[in-house]
Amino acid sequence: MSLFEAHDLSVSFGGIKAVRDVSFTIRSGEVFSIIGPNGAGKTTLFNLVSRFYETDSGSMAFDGVDITGVPPHRIAEMGIARTFQNTELFEHETVLTNLLIAHHVHRRTRLVADLLFLPGARRQELDFRRRVEDVIDLLDLQSYREQPIGGLPYGARKMVEIARALCLEPKLLLLDEPSSGLNPEETEDLSFWIEDIVEDLGITVAMVEHDMNLVATVSNRVLAMADGVVLATGDPTEIQNHPDVLRAYLGD
């Protein structure tokens, strides 16, 4: 069953057509990877899905609902979480606060209840606090819990960002180059975690990734892009041997 469908998406910045008529579907419960050389439009595609960019033409549907005109903050409520290529964490706050912020979509209290910290607000805080701990356990972040983001090593920040996205309890998780800046061991750990996320939490993962090893290990299907257009879609081995893909990476 398809969880996400994109139909003929296009966007251009000035004269540059960053994404041209891209169509793809993400099936429920799979790991879907997007590969391509630098400047292929992979991150742009993610920004279209998170609605940071306005699409020029085409449409997107998530879980059967059209999201082409939905404002960006509604995307998270609908169940799409994402991470960023160069990590966009809340720098001055601790890991714990970062993860608690992600629970915003689940809030049941409003301003007045928060100001007075009514019993409902307290119950909600305790509930959020407990759920945060599940994610910390899953990704082994215990030792960083109380530390401010500013002092964390890059690899840990990457993991905190994934943890924060998981705290949204999404149906679809978009990972933008999760392995960039990680060492080979950390990348290997990452592949196990991605499998855990898909199998244990039942979250569908879509990722932009350059590390072909990681892509081949975890992905069910791969979409290859170059210069804003789709070259091919298929399983990892198929894509790695596809003539168009080889040409895009290696030249003629």
Binding site: F84, E88, F90, E91, T109, F117
Partner: peptide, 25 residues
């Protein structure tokens, strides 16, 4: 009270990263 509940944390999120705050809903 505000700062230990969702409203206050939303303020902090907006301060530190608007893009991220949006993607947190």
């Amino acid at each position: 009270n505000l700062l230990r509940s969702p409203t206050g944390r939303a303020f902090i999120a907006v301060r530190d990263s608007e893009v991220s705050a949006q993607s947190m809903g």
